[in-house]
Simulated assay, not measured.
Amino acid sequence: MTTVETSRVTAPRLPARLPAPDDRAVPFTRLVHVELRKTLDTRAGRWLLIGITAVTAIVVGIVIFTGSADAHKDLSDFLTATVIPQSILLPLLGIITVTSEWTQRTGLVTFALEPDRTRVGRSKLASAALLGLLVLATAVLLAVVATGLCEVLRGGHPTWSLDALTIGGVVLAQLLAVVQGVAFGLVLQNTPAAIVSYLVLPQAWTIVGDLVHGLHGVQPWLDLNSATSPLVDASMTAENWAQLGVAGLVWVVLPLIAGVVRLRRSDVK
């Protein structure tokens, strides 16, 4: 009689319960860091920042070597001069921060790693605002250096004081410009279209408001450029604040809301 021995095959032991999936959201600070890297690591974003700094330096240099040594050469004057190019160029930074998801075709990866598109939009807004503040800090540094150079090279006697209203007004004006760029980028999701719309539409309204006599009373309430001018000059009145609120609602808040809605609903190809 032959005894057949059967060998036992040991099966791998499975856990009694699978670990729960990690449903923790990506930290918001990490999202902001990623958006900053996206802007700074691309040639368009990097050269735009360099261009903003270079244009600001050129404008400051022109102010130093034109006119008399003591005419409009104070620190506040140089700070105001830096706001002029930045108020035009900073919104472009906000635009490319948003539209890069569609022009560079990275949206599919971004929204797969972070499905909550509203958080992605907030992180883009935060990164654009941080970059705007960084550029503004560079502009303040250039203004300080320019004031010293004017005193040394031109023999002027500039005033170095800056009041809190001027600084706060400049910061608020520049942040509004950056947020406006983000809003236009979210609405159009295309870099050339967003840039052209941002440059043309507000200026077209300004021209129409100046030419059409019946719009003279409405034009200051819907012109964001003229509404932010008293901010930089630290000459805001109650009426100026009301005009800034209405113009900001039309050109910044409403486009931003529409852009967030489109961001949540648009298909990523």
Rank of each mutant, 00 (worst) to 15 (best):
I52R: 08
G156H: 03
V145F: 08
V196Q: 07
L162D: 02
A126D: 03
T56G: 11
L14W: 14
A242G: 08
A227K: 10
L256K: 07
L93P: 07
P15L: 13
S266E: 03
L31W: 05
Q180M: 04
P220Y: 12
W102F: 11
A137W: 03
A146C: 07
D116H: 02
I88L: 10
A227P: 06
P255C: 01
V4H: 15
G248W: 07
S87Y: 00
V4Q: 09
L134F: 05
P91W: 09
G245S: 05
G156W: 03
R30W: 12
V55H: 00
A128I: 03
T166I: 11
L249E: 05
V268C: 04
L108T: 10
A128V: 05
A57K: 09
T237S: 12
L130N: 04
Q243T: 12
N225S: 13
D23W: 01
F28G: 07
T166E: 10
T118K: 00
V135M: 01
K73W: 13
G148M: 11
P21K: 15
V63T: 13
T166F: 09
W251V: 00
R105V: 07
F184I: 00
E151W: 11
R154C: 05
V187Y: 01
M1I: 14
V152S: 10
A54I: 01
D74Y: 06
D267Q: 13
V9E: 11
W241S: 00
A54G: 08
N240Q: 10
K38S: 06
R24Y: 10
W102I: 01
V212F: 07
G155I: 08
E101Q: 14
I84S: 07
T6Q: 15
A146P: 04
A71K: 14
N225G: 13
S235E: 06
L79R: 00
L201D: 09
T191M: 02
Q104I: 10
F78Q: 04
T191E: 00
T166D: 01
L141I: 05
L40G: 06
R43V: 15
L125Y: 04
V144F: 12
S76E: 03
V208H: 14
A44K: 09
L231S: 00
S197V: 00
T147V: 05
L244Y: 01
D223M: 15
